[in-house]
Design a protein around this nucleic acid. Structure first.
Lengths: 151, 151
DNA sequence: TTCGTTGCAAAAGGTTTGCATACCA
DNA sequence: TGGTATGCAAACCTTTTGCAACGAA
């Protein structure tokens, strides 16, 4: 899940503009994002933060998450209704996930085959700067119909 | 590109509610969508329709496109900025496309391998009602850097 | 002290809804 | 004639921006 950024492009040094100042809010947001398993919306994260007694503005959450995604520390995707979701990205390695529509849990996928396929596609079609998004979701075993029948 | 609906689920007959009345507007919208190669936003389609002298409300375009997508006659996806895009789907067969970020042109992909992979994934993980979205884009040969260097 | 960061309120901008009217079946 | 479709305007909602105050370096 999540847009795979141009991994070929090393690191645009000219993009550097602000040295990123470390603040209480930013720390809280990054921490909360890491704690979260799976994707969260800015609004949900804001609510959660507030609930935990962290006084913080919604605007700040939006800006911090955007910065995180911009720096490559978070994957983003769109929900069906257009809401933007964020997810902490452990390494800089691009990954895909399978997640449950019911409970939101997610698990990383071994997508070597897909990646190869996309690479071949690029060579075959001659398209440059190929990017790909793969989203897979379903109902996990825990949430599935079988589990409810067990009781 | 586009969300692949549950192809396993045959057709929920209980979903039927309105017999779908054929009107001038609906015909125009469906026609315009078919004419369009690739994805269009509701707003763009509305503008185009108006430009061609078709008096029609933006609301109607939204509703008609939603109905089309609901009926399985159109694929939908979200742009990076959250705008919803629609694309005519020829058959009921679900497909994926590679499209150019520059000119918007798209071409269908032979994704048999991917489909197989997704099927295996479902069996392996035990997830039910698996859905997948695959979006691939890049810069096509025509729009690429080589073409501009030719002059 | 400097200048990035914060947060409130307001603006944007895409999409949906309320409701009276028009029109297909 | 009955009920769906239409279209305008207003409502909704998520996200972004303006701006004065704050605080990390």
């Amino acid at each position: 899940v999540g847009r795979a950024p141009d991994e070929e492009t090393p690191h645009d040094a000219t993009r550097e503009s602000a040295p990123q100042r470390r603040t209480r809010q930013r720390a809280s947001i990054q921490h909360a994002l890491i704690e979260q398993e799976g994707f969260v919306s800015a609004q949900a994260l804001h609510t959660s933060l507030r609930a935990n007694g962290v006084h913080i503005g919604l605007t700040t959450v939006y800006r911090a998450l955007a910065a995180l995604a911009d720096a490559g520390h978070a994957d983003t995707m769109r929900e069906d209704n257009g809401v933007r979701l964020f997810r902490h990205r452990p390494g800089s390695q691009h990954r895909h996930y399978l997640f449950c529509r019911e409970c939101g849990s997610s698990e990383p996928l071994e997508t070597g085959i897909l990646e190869e396929w996309f690479e071949r596609l690029g060579r075959r079609t001659g398209y440059a700067e190929l990017r790909h998004t793969v989203e897979v979701d379903g109902i996990c075993v825990t949430c599935g119909p079988d589990s409810s029948r067990a009781g």
